[in-house]
Design a protein around this nucleic acid. Structure first.
Length: 418
RNA sequence: GUGAGUGUAGCUCAGUUGGCAGAGCAUCUGACUGUGGCUCAGAGGGUCGCGGGUUCAAUCCCCGUCACUCACCCCA
């Protein structure tokens, strides 16, 4: 083989692609009802956009970015996530001048240079939203509810919604110190990674899956007890609003964000059947990011659904692909040309029509019609041409109906559902 | 970046204690001169991942390498 696709990227064909369309169609439909509009952004940006917002010491920036130099000597990066480029666009085009909140959605590929494994690719796809300009927890709850609606409607079952608040720039540092204090004495009970995290990012210790760490961190202070008055009120508001919308959730104070820009609300939808990569979708609030990017103080909240995570969970609930309404089996050159023209005219009337191109036995033509799942078939030979009439066969019940070789007459028969 | 496993037909996989490369599925053709799904027959399709070594002989044994898969880290 001469050429192969790169590691961690994939080609998507039918019937797989129908599942993608199924999800995208549902998402678009739901977004529209909530007033979210599509935006299309570049997949490549100046590197600083990511390193400044996601955090210099985050894993994404430290080792997972697709970064290279372009011909002008600039450091550019394929986007590893959608929020930072969105905020760049939001600030650049002064979108805050529109009525608040501004609601947008996007779908497309993201890139992270990681070792691929189950449900994790280097080029992966997300459907995401961003709502800007209000810190009202109603907006948070609405976004979560919308996410839940989309996931349910695509066919997802057995998923779990987890929420927490990770505080703001005022209360989080305080909590961080308290956490470090409580762990300090028994640091030797933790794994090597956690001992490193202790200094660099102590919050991550809460997320460690090593059993000795889970044990050792028991009794550690919880972020929810350290929220400042404003953050606590906001979190209560979120819970209250979720209750109003009958969205059920579980509290998980150990949700940790890999990205530095998050504040307050953080949530995740997880599924145990995914194994170790169990997050299907995740999101949160980022109230300081716009300002950091040089715009006016504008709060925001967003989430992203991982397509490759969702697809395996709903695969079985998507119905099979349809076949053409009509398939022509011509016998001979003249019949072939007649079919060729009729097919084109029927398509113009809105029907899905196909024909057999290369001459072959009727038997093999019928076989092909069956294989492509055709609903009806017309056999066209010398006899039929002479009479201007043919037989149209319903492939389900094998019934044959006489029909004149005219667009109107054929349409009448294939239009009605079998 | 770390660890483990696997590379044989389009797909799923057998196989040879080292001796002409196999099955099922899929594809195409035929079994009625013009009617599909089931059945039967036939055909096409291979650098046995790649490179080296041992051997009269390597798909098989040894070394290297690449790719894929899974897990860790982390994440959607």
């Amino acid at each position: 083989m001469r050429f192969k696709s790169l590691k961690g990227v994939q080609d998507i064909f039918p019937p797989e692609v129908f599942i993608w369309q199924h999800i995208e169609n549902i998402a678009r439909e739901v977004f529209q009802k909530y007033g979210y509009h599509e935006i299309r952004l570049p997949v490549i940006e100046v590197t600083d956009i990511f390193s400044r917002s996601i955090g210099e010491t985050s894993d994404i920036v430290e080792k997972e970015m697709y970064t290279f130099e372009d011909k002008g000597g600039r450091s550019v990066t394929l986007r590893p996530e959608g929020t930072a480029p969105f905020v760049r666009a939001f600030v650049q085009h002064h979108l805050h001048n529109g009525p608040s909140p501004q609601k947008y959605y996007y779908l497309g590929p993201m890139f992270r240079y990681e070792r691929p494994q189950a449900y994790r690719n280097r080029q992966f796809y997300q459907i995401g939203i961003e709502a800007m300009g209000s810190e009202n927890p109603q907006l948070d709850a609405e976004a979560v509810s919308m996410l839940w609606t989309i996931l349910k409607r695509t066919g997802l079952k057995d998923a779990r919604l987890e929420i927490t608040s990770i505080g703001c720039r005022l209360c989080r540092p305080e909590y961080k110190t308290a956490l470090q204090k409580s762990i300090k004495g028994k640091l030797k009970d933790f794994c090597e990674d956690c001992r490193r995290r202790y200094k660099a990012n102590p919050l991550r210790i809460l997320d460690c899956k090593v059993s000795s760490c889970i044990k050792a961190r028991k009794g550690a202070p919880a972020i929810l007890d350290y929220l400042c008055v404003e953050c606590g009120g906001h979190f209560n508001g979120l819970k209250h609003n979720l209750d109003l919308l009958n969205v059920s959730y579980v509290l998980n104070p150990n949700i940790v964000r890999g990205l530095d820009y998050y504040t307050r609300t953080a949530f995740e939808v997880t599924s145990e059947s995914l194994g170790s990569q169990k997050a299907v979708a995740a999101g949160g609030r980022y109230d300081m990011l716009v300002k950091e990017f040089g715009g006016p103080q504008t709060p925001g909240i967003g989430f992203a659904i991982g397509m490759e995570r969702l697809i395996p969970l709903i695969k079985d609930s998507v119905e099979e692909a349809q076949g053409p309404d009509l398939f022509f089996c011509p016998l001979g050159r003249e019949a072939s040309e007649k079919s060729f023209v009729l097919a084109e005219q029927l398509r113009a009337e809105g029907s899905w029509v196909e024909m057999n191109y290369d001459s072959s036995s009727l038997r093999s033509q019928m076989r092909k019609a069956d294989r492509v799942n055709a609903r009806t078939v017309i056999v066209l030979g010398e006899d039929e041409l002479k009479k201007g009439k043919a037989v149209i066969k319903d492939m389900q019940n094998k019934k044959e109906t006489a029909v004149a070789l005219k667009v109107k007459d054929i349409l009448e028969i294939i239009k009605k559902p079998s």
